[in-house]
Computed example of a mutant assay.
Amino acid sequence: MTRTPRLLRRPLAVLALLVLVLTGLAVTAGGSQAGVPERDRGTAHPARIVWPGYGVAVWRASGQLHRLAKTSPGFRALVERELDHMFHRYLDSDPACAQAPLVQVKEFRRSGFAFISDEGTFTNGPGNPPERCASGGAARIYVRVDGVWKAPVVLGAQEPFSCRVLRRWDVPRMSGTGRCYDAQGQLVPYRP
């Protein structure tokens, strides 16, 4: 058994630490911060935000997008697009229904995932839209793909998600994913 002389052990440890630090700096400078897009880097946005209860409600045409100020600009842009999409697609741009679309955000992760506890059109929001504006809603998971936030149709449901779909999208265990349906249709704990 050979031993490294005591005088050489410390410089080797320092060298190893220096290599790790420099490697980390090179990765950061090279722009591969675990998929964080350029516009979201270096901001004061927390890595994870979980709102109490069902989450923070953002109604279309209500000026409430500021409630998501601690999330990324790309995420807020997707929420705004989804609200407008529901207004134009499901409500035929009916002015009386302008404030019926809702996106209720329960959890946001800077790593590229957000759990939307409810997304749909309702009459109990600001402006009291008429009953014809209500069509109900569903839970969603928004994901960031290649630096762009998206709301895939397959990640929307009115009951627990499929474990296979969650894994296919690399969704971490988070709000709304505690249990999922396995291949046999059994409700089981989600294990990413």
Rank of each mutant, 00 (worst) to 15 (best):
R9Y: 06
A69H: 12
Q186S: 14
F108D: 02
S32A: 14
L65K: 02
Q186G: 05
I49S: 06
G74F: 13
V36L: 06
T177G: 07
A34V: 02
E38R: 04
T121C: 15
G178I: 05
R6V: 09
P129R: 02
A134N: 00
W59H: 09
A134H: 04
L22N: 14
D182H: 05
A29S: 12
A134L: 00
L15Q: 09
S117Q: 08
R10L: 09
E107N: 09
A96F: 13
P172S: 01
H88S: 12
R179A: 00
S111T: 10
S117D: 09
G127H: 06
A13S: 07
A13E: 06
V153N: 14
G24T: 12
D182M: 05
D84F: 04
L12V: 04
M86I: 10
S135V: 03
F108G: 01
C163D: 05
F122S: 06
A57G: 15
R10A: 03
N128L: 11
G74Y: 08
R132S: 04
Q64R: 15
T177F: 03
Q184G: 03
S93V: 07
D40W: 00
R140D: 03
E107C: 12
V14H: 00
G156I: 03
A98C: 05
F108Q: 01
M174E: 06
F75G: 02
G120S: 08
T121G: 07
G120L: 05
W169E: 00
G125P: 04
Q99P: 08
R3M: 09
P95N: 10
L7D: 10
K106W: 05
R191C: 00
A29I: 12
S111G: 15
I116Y: 10
R179K: 04
T177L: 01
G120W: 04
R179C: 00
T28G: 11
L15E: 01
Q104V: 06
A157V: 11
A26D: 12
D92Y: 15
I116S: 02
G112C: 11
C163R: 07
T121R: 07
R191I: 09
F75P: 14
A26Q: 14
S117K: 00
R3P: 09
V56D: 10
V165E: 11
P160Q: 11
